[in-house]
Amino acid sequence: MSYCELHCCSAFSFLRGGSFPEQLAEVAAELEMPAMALLDRNGVYGAQRFSVAAREHGVRPIVGAELSMEGGSILPVLVENRTGYKNLCELLTQAHLRSEKGKCAVHWDELPEFAEGLVVLFNASLANCRASVSDANPSRRFTETPHKLIDVFGRGNVFVELQRHFIRGEERINRQLIDIALAHRLPLLATNAAQYAKPYGREVLDVFTCIREHTHLDIAGKLLTQNAERHLKSERQMRAIFADLPEAIENTSRLAERLTFSLENLGYEFPEYPVPAGHTMDSFLRTIVWFGAQQRYAAISRKVKRQIEEELALISKLGFPGYFLIV
């Protein structure tokens, strides 16, 4: 089974990603990745460009987002189906509408309403989500948050995400995450949480970090990244890094196969127009059109009649009666 990167953000995650979606898709194809997920921060901004580029390069695009939760933690979610995409978009819209620009935060208690069709990754960031669990003890928070996620999303839709960036201290967190996965019978998922396509993208990301933090490189210090390991990695590299946990690699392609949603056949559904009882939108539009025609032409000619019928048939066929009724 191949490795699929299921946690990656593009430059559309404002000042948090160092590569354009097209670059990510191109490198994913170079690395012979069968599928890849783009999770931009608090939005699906790069999803369309990524989907087009990925399909051009023969990589199956997967849609998702990183949600900023109240309390400061980040919840990565992946879209499984059309319902999931609708839920994700509604959740993001609600969060953005009530927040100041750039300070969007999703409430934990609104997750159940929009959980259907979404898969979440439990990672180290969620260990610090104070709002999710009332207890301030970090070790309790660490163990209680997965309970909450399982209750909301269902056991089959929660994966424990492991990342290895060759940073001192990360293995201690990974061991805790593995213990949680064992205790809750949750599958492990290896990701590289990529923020750029190639290692040199780290330089762009460091500059972006300085812009975000209103500082400059010489004094940014520990705000900058420790190394250049958050790039897209090949299956061989990831298998070597997770040599002790092969199932974490294999689960990436298993999960990718499940996530069938694509923006390709999304189409557009116009909002419903309220029609009187006994009418459909098609029949109501037809009634209004004939009424209008009679007012406009004292006697409706055969030519006009044919034209109206043709137009109505086309509108009905394309599913646009709602649009014409609204405008």
């Binding site: 060759f166 940073i167 001192r168 293995e171 780290r202 330089e203 460091d206 490189l217 900058l224 420790q226 190394n227 250049a228 390991e229």
Partner: peptide, 12 residues
Amino acid sequence: KRGPYLLSGTWW
């Protein structure tokens, strides 16, 4: 052994 822990900086 544990590692490697990779560190780099001041690339500019």
